[in-house]
Design a protein around this nucleic acid. Structure first.
Lengths: 242, 242
DNA sequence: TTACATGTGTGATGGCCGTCACATCCTGCT
DNA sequence: AGCAGGATGTGACGGCCATCACACATGTAA
């Protein structure tokens, strides 16, 4: 079972080798051992829903492995991606802190591991450990910043090509997670479908297809499955005004 | 001086008659008296800038009286309103907590009073008073929720009329601050210019003018200076799909 | 292999709305 | 009163992109 999803389950937070690099998990040992008692670890396949927008908040999820997308949906079924969460983030925090329903639907983009902590346990946990309160604040500010970035991206860009160029450039900034830099070319792995990219930039799937086709035709970008290679970064940057 | 801006200055937080209704200020007495020592009260005219986007964060502002708009601007000078802050909110929090520059430019919409607290003092204040930490979390979740609402409003609406109808209806929900309900008509006070409304919904000033003109022509809305009267709420609601 | 679902490329069409241009109105100021 | 500057109303035009409609590709289950 431990290998069913092609990665090791992290059973013990104290022994987790990633914890220093992570937004939430870098806590003193006493807090971590408390966390160890109140968490419930689960493993999810790609496409699993951790929670649904509008549901009453049951608790938070600490994402250990894998990435997840946070989306919000209109009555008509149109939906938009609020952000992509990385390992080490606490999800569902806004809802739990404010005692309101979940703000977003959370869906795993890859096979993932997450630790669930119930609302009651989490509130106690925060009250007993000041360091945890600090991490909570950090996570909340991170959420805000992402949201503001999203507002800027959607509201201040003039054209869809600009928004998509911005997105690709943002992804290429992150060599840690899924970018590998070569002398001149920058390769990134993109696991989102065009439909999801469309939801990210607030446009239609067809337009994404056309814009990417255009970038390819101009020799700015090579797309081979999930691997994209930026061949002409300055050209992409020239599209971005913000 | 105390009446120069047509309202009383609230010198002493402990005696502030509004504090229970406010997001941040409803604190135990010991915290409030500490706050009393570290705050610096200022009064601002309409249109004053409390801080500028991109500046290093010097501290936070607790808005006592008046409202303020938070905007972010692109390189081209296009700007968008992130939200309107109400009395009792802490502004500049995201920047101070995360130690990064201010996310937004804050401009008063009315003559206002605000208490400034320096970064260092505020951090101590939060660490010494657990209740304050709770309020900080509440404020941050409020910021997130507003931002998510903004993303939904901008990203999920199809048309500008829909966005503007949504905005007007949102304003009319808030009878406390500037709405007064009559049997059939709902009157609200709107202090934003059409230009600002355009920035709020991510469109152009001319379009706002046209849409409002259209609403008037259809008899859904009466606009008399800053006082707007909703004459046909169901019609406005029928435009909104979210 | 065949089927079916999901993801992607591409043309045609039309409407929304951004932009430019100018007129008009309103408010505050001297 | 009269002026200046800002806020608002309105017409004309054109481009971007959403939508519809399919074909093709890719992956996956039977």
């Amino acid at each position: 079972m431990a290998m069913a999803y092609n990665f090791h389950i992290i059973e013990n937070c104290l022994k987790c080798s990633f914890r220093e690099q992570r937004l939430f998990c870098d806590l003193p040992n006493d807090a971590l051992s408390k966390l160890q008692n109140i968490k419930a670890t689960s493993v999810y396949p790609k496409g699993a829903m951790l929670c649904l927008e509008g549901q009453p908040a049951r608790g938070v999820f600490v994402l250990c492995t894998g990435r997840a997308k946070l989306t919000t949906t209109s009555a008509e079924g149109k939906s938009i991606i609020l952000r992509i969460a990385e390992p080490g983030e606490v999800l569902g925090l806004t809802a739990v802190v404010s005692g309101s329903p979940y703000e977003a639907t959370i869906e795993t983009l890859e096979p993932s591991q997450a630790n669930f902590i119930s609302q009651a346990d989490f509130v106690h946990f925060v009250q007993e450990h000041p360091d945890v309160g600090m991490k909570v604040a950090k996570q909340l500010t991170h959420n805000c910043k992402c949201a503001y970035g999203e507002i800027r991206a959607i509201g201040l860009s003039n054209s869809v090509p600009e928004k998509i160029a911005k997105l690709v450039l943002k992804w290429s900034e992150n060599p840690l997670d899924f970018a590998r830099k070569n002398p001149r070319e920058i390769a990134i792995r993109v696991t989102l479908t065009q439909e999801e990219i469309a939801q990210f930039v607030g446009t239609s799937r067809e337009t994404v297809s056309r814009v990417l086709g255009d970038f390819r035709k101009k020799g700015w970008l090579r797309i081979k499955g999930a691997t994209w290679t930026i061949l002409n970064k300055p050209a992409l940057q020239s599209l971005v005004t913000t």
